[in-house]
Write a protein that binds this DNA or RNA. Structure first.
Lengths: 340, 340
DNA sequence: CTGTTAGCGCGTTCAG
DNA sequence: CTGAACGCGCTAACAG
């Protein structure tokens, strides 16, 4: 049987109130303090945070809803959040929505029923109706990697991210650039695609040929298939930009099967470990994933302490272009059109 | 304010007991049932699992302690466990021990204080003393990927795993094989190293030269450094076996910098995604990571339902040797010594 | 500073 | 089948 205040009372003769005060930082006479500490040690006593939360209405746990668990992106997100949250005394309940809106709504109800004090979520799509249960109960929500109107959000500057990739390529002389991007239903994909269009138009003065934008299922397979499809075009692009990590993996796999001569330039997205594994060393748009997680956790903690901003805020972080081996972004042979 | 039974009572005129019964599968008269359902819908009522757990002494949450969060192995582990556990109604609190025994002990106390019903853990080392708080409170623990005496464990057959790699290499004619393995303090490393020794002796009739066993810091860097050190030996091995995923990555990186002629054969460990990214396609000892997670979750659920075996059990799963491009495991040039 | 008395939201006896 | 009463472990008023 696990020990409770009553057991400590039995051993010390003190009242429950005194014991409670001891555990809540109140002033307790030195001899009593010692009595309690001894009894607690003897009983191997452990505070019951559940009962405690019943009164204080704080479970000291937060829910984290990810759209998938086994991706490098979300792995880093979880890791950093858990670190920061537990530091602040919070437990982290993770839930995988598996990119399914219904599952996401289920999970939200599940977490609300678990009385979590706050929720961090990477939403599956733009439909924010799943947030209702949290709103109703005043549970603060922070969205990550998606802009959710009316809700605290921590995102990256997706348009600038893609623009930096396009700029690198156009500077290297590319004028025909393909993009591998997912459906517009996802915020990041929509933004990156728009960023691509704008940047290409901006840099080359032309609208990108629509064939160069390949809407694909967001996955490694999609990246493989997409790059192959791009290269089968009558006028294939000389460079390809990948709008996320899965596409980058897939495109790399597909390109590995090509000879170096016919290989287009490639700018990938995300994961930095990749840079060390693949030859030629890839050029990547690196997201500040850890900062994304830390900022989100910090923002939620502020809300939980009641000292956040009055209005919902949006925190936007910048990406970094990691230049790889030059063969990954330069034309080869290099028919420099004078831009470089 | 969030609704409680009392609010439902107010709207229905029923007693708390009846409402409780409704939510716990008891028989309630049809009209009353409808009353409750209507009131619950109006109030947007949500059962308070915390209060509920106070009495039932079940928090319906389990703790999962990993030695690191951002590794492909643990990512898969978490993903599958969360899936299975939530299916069974349990929330999953994840904690990262960061391969630190003290942090692990902290986390254990944290979880016990959170009244988790059970714990799944990938322990950092062989010291099982951190389990005491759980034992004291009768919280069932399942260890994953480590054999913990007296505790339910789900592991792979590490010796056989390495033996399969060695067998492949010796069959291909290799007699001088290096191993990249971590310190003996980790169960898996100890087992894989022992498996290596046994297998080499078994197959070649010789004890492996000790220089060929490189104890390294378990990391990508260790893999890089280890393989370079092996190749600098006066008589470098013609093949290298990696005892984990990090080493495999590191070794691959290091080998990428070598010309194909001087490149030793390589058998890696773990992650299957890797196989698709790297050229030449690597040969890998693939662990059934998902099964590891599922079996562990299943075992814990049994314990939570009180219908598990009387004694602690050990579940051992088998690995699969994934043959990559033949250049990754065959001698080149092939001085077949008649074994093949 | 300490003890007493009420609950927190819900589950579980018991009567009825 | 339903209702009243009590208790889960702890915190928050208030008195002393």
């Amino acid at each position: 049987m696990v020990a409770t205040y009553k057991d400590i009372r039995r051993l010390t003769g003190l009242s429950l109130a005194t014991i409670s005060k001891y555990y809540n930082g109140g002033n307790v006479l030195e001899p009593n303090r010692e009595l309690i500490e001894k009894a607690a040690a003897d009983l191997d006593y452990q505070l019951n945070n559940v009962a405690r939360g019943l009164r204080s209405r704080r479970s000291m746990t937060v829910g984290v809803i990810l759209d998938e668990l086994d991706s490098a992106f979300n792995t880093t997100i979880v890791s950093r959040m858990e670190e920061r949250l537990r530091e602040a005394g919070y437990g982290t309940i993770i839930c995988d929505s598996r990119k399914d809106a219904e599952a996401q709504a289920d999970v939200m109800r599940f977490l609300v029923g678990k009385m979590v004090d706050g929720i961090i979520v990477v939403p599956v799509d733009d439909d924010a109706s799943f947030l209702v249960p949290a709103r109703d109960r005043g549970v603060p929500v922070v969205a990550v990697d998606r802009l959710v109107p009316g809700t605290d959000s921590v995102i990256i500057d997706n348009r600038a991210a893609i623009a930096s990739a396009v700029q690198l390529l156009t500077t290297a002389g590319h004028t025909s650039i393909g993009l591998l991007a997912g459906p517009d239903s996802t915020y990041t994909m929509r933004e990156r695609r728009a960023g691509f269009r704008d940047a290409v138009q901006d840099r080359t003065g032309l609208l990108p040929r629509t064939e160069l934008i390949e809407p694909e299922h967001v996955s490694i397979e999609g990246g493989c298939a997409g790059v192959r499809r791009l290269l089968r075009l009558s006028a294939p692009p000389t460079a390809v930009v990948c709008a996320n990590y899965g596409f980058t993996l897939g495109a790399t796999i597909a390109l590995n099967e090509l000879g170096p001569e016919s290989r287009p330039a490639l700018v990938g997205f995300d994961n930095m470990d990749l840079a060390r594994l693949i030859r030629p060393r890839p050029t990547l748009v690196a997201q500040p994933i850890e900062d994304l997680a830390i900022e989100a956790a910090e923002l939620l903690l502020q809300r939980l302490n009641g000292d956040g901003p009055d209005e919902p805020v949006t925190i936007t972080l910048d990406t970094t272009l990691m230049i790889g081996h030059e063969s990954t972004y330069q034309l080869r042979p290099v028919p420099s059109n004078g831009r470089l």
